[in-house]
Design a protein around this nucleic acid. Structure first.
Length: 486
RNA sequence: GCCAAGAUAGCUUAGAGGCGAAGCGGUUGGCUGCAGACCAAUUACACGGGAGUUCAAAUCUCUCUCUUGGCUCCA
């Protein structure tokens, strides 16, 4: 298993700090508005990464912070004339709902900044005590010049930074120094959320919450830290400085993983350009599965260009896989009904769909006699092992489906191999977080019964060769988004 | 200015020294009462321009052109 680390700028063999345990931290959102599709891209990618690592047998603890105190939240809440904590709770809830809709279910614990104020203050105090931070009348600042390796993640040096930054705060010793604690006493800050600290009432700077949270749950060193590409500088460099200064240990993490940007029609997504799309808006038009597949069709580090065409392509790809599984199920059922299967298999196939899935484990899909399938399985896992190359892994599936559709039609696949194939797709579904085995549209039991009646009527009409009427019903059903196949 | 990523068939992309690229779209045919799904053929001996290395280059090197992104808050 190879993972690309931003620190070394190359793929490295995965080595865990402790046996089969992996501690994974990914920077979460600032909850001041609905999550957009760029967030979706990043969190779907890390969801897949966690799923695959667990599939490989690692026990992964995935921790994510929620930034619920920050300038943007405060400004927005002032505009809306509500408490900033109320605003943050609202969007936190909506964020978690959005993630659930996208089947991003792998985060083990969400840690709010405001729930870790003691840890934050304690870490700042230790930085001050060790001489890495200094106190002014406006707050507490990290003195970048005290930390020799500052900028080692983003490959920047301090002198270079000096020239590019204009900073109005002259209480700081250097413009590069960043806030650990912002004092917010005085009338101009009335109504802002504040916490007591040894330096007066105020609130934490942006970077400190992550290191306070990770230090509490993971300690000073852990395995993987992830986030969007845009966080490398200054956020992640600041995190490294804080925790390595406080602990005296290096490196903070073994692997820095960063996801690429999602652009919209070749341009950066921004509110001013009017191409800002929230997850909620997107899901009015496309299914969560379509968006997930669209995301995974590109390597997690590469930029993705979001467009209707690409979304549509992803949609068709998902249904192509599902159509194949449907054909596979039909072939399995046909064998079963003909009594062409062993007693053991017959017993399994008589179970409910959900129970069959559990029994599929019996059918090992590595090294089967079915050659086309073998190549697909091999390429799928080789690609996933190579820095989670989902595009290459997915690319292995389509030629196989093409071949296998033909083989199914010619009944050239043994029942054992068919079940092994199904087992493989069950695992693929688990890894990618898209349930390919579920090709039926979601309908309630009532709808189901209703559709059955309509299907019966159509069957009778067609038997009487009244095609005009039966086709008319079919067209209208299709218009409603209900697929009909005869 | 500094630092990245990229230019592959009509479209969207994968690949990264020799092996029929994939999906979507178009056309034609098979199956079907028709349509869809599926299958086949075709569009299609594709890799931005130029030079070099090599028996062999989309792939490596150099160079040019163009595109996008980052360098202030951002996933």
């Amino acid at each position: 298993m190879k993972i690309y680390s931003t620190m070394s700028r190359e793929k490295e063999d995965l080595k865990t700090l402790f046996k089969d345990k992996i501690k994974l931290f990914v920077c979460g959102p600032t909850v001041y508005d609905d999550a957009h599709i760029g967030h979706g891209r990043t969190y779907i990618s890390f969801d897949m990464i966690k799923r695959y690592l667990e599939f490989k047998g690692y026990s992964v603890f995935y921790l994510q912070n929620i930034t619920d105190v920050d300038d943007k939240i405060i400004n927005r809440s002032k505009e809306r004339n509500i408490e900033s904590s109320q605003l943050a709770r609202k969007y936190e809830k909506r964020f978690i709902e959005d993630m659930a809709t996208l089947n991003v279910t792998s985060v083990n614990y969400f840690a709010r900044a405001t729930d870790h104020m003691d840890e934050i203050i304690d870490q700042i105090q230790r930085l001050v005590d060790k001489g890495f931070a200094y106190v002014t009348e406006t707050g507490v600042y990290f003195e970048v010049s005290k930390f020799d390796e500052f900028g080692k993640l983003s490959n920047r040096n301090i002198e270079e930074l000096e020239t590019h930054r204009i900073d109005v705060d002259d209480s700081k010793r250097s413009s590069n120094d960043f806030a650990l604690w912002k004092n917010r006493e005085g009338e101009e800050f009335a109504g802002e959320p504040v916490w007591d600290s040894p330096w007066g009432k105020g609130r934490p700077g942006w970077h400190i919450e992550d290191t306070a949270i990770t230090e509490k749950y993971f300690g000073a060193q852990y395995d993987i830290h992830g986030g969007g590409l845009d966080l490398i500088f200054p956020h992640h460099d600041a995190e490294i400085a804080q925790i390595e200064a406080v602990s005296g240990k290096s490196p903070l993490v073994q692997y820095w993983m960063h996801t690429g940007f999602l652009n919209v029609s070749g341009e950066k997504m921004s509110k001013s350009l009017g191409n800002f799309i929230t997850i909620r808006e997107l899901l009015k038009e496309y299914s969560p599965e379509t968006f997930r597949f669209f995301v995974l069709l590109t390597h997690y580090r590469s930029p993705i260009d979001f467009s209707e065409v690409s979304l549509h392509q992803a949609e068709r790809n998902v249904s192509r896989i599902k159509n194949y599984i449907e054909a596979l199920d039909e072939a399995i059922a046909a064998e079963y009904e003909k009594g062409n299967v062993s007693d053991n298999i017959a017993e399994i196939l008589s179970l409910d769909e959900s129970e069959i899935r559990e029994e599929l484990l019996e059918f090992n899909y590595h090294g089967t006699a079915y050659e086309a399938f073998d190549e697909c399985v091999d390429q799928f896992f080789t690609s996933m092992d190579d820095d989670f190359s989902t595009p290459k892994a997915i690319a292995a599936i389509f030629p196989f489906i093409k071949q296998s559709n033909k083989d199914l039609e010619e009944r050239k696949i043994s029942i054992e191999d068919m079940l092994a194939v199904k087992h493989f797709f069950a695992d693929v579904s688990e890894i990618l977080g898209i349930d390919f085995l579920d090709y039926k549209d979601e309908t309630s039991a009532n709808d189901e019964a209703l559709l059955e009646i309509i299907a019966d009527v159509r069957a009778k009409l067609r038997a009487e060769k009244k095609y005009d009427l039966s086709d008319d019903i079919r067209d209208k059903l299709v218009q409603l988004g209900i697929e009909v196949s005869d």
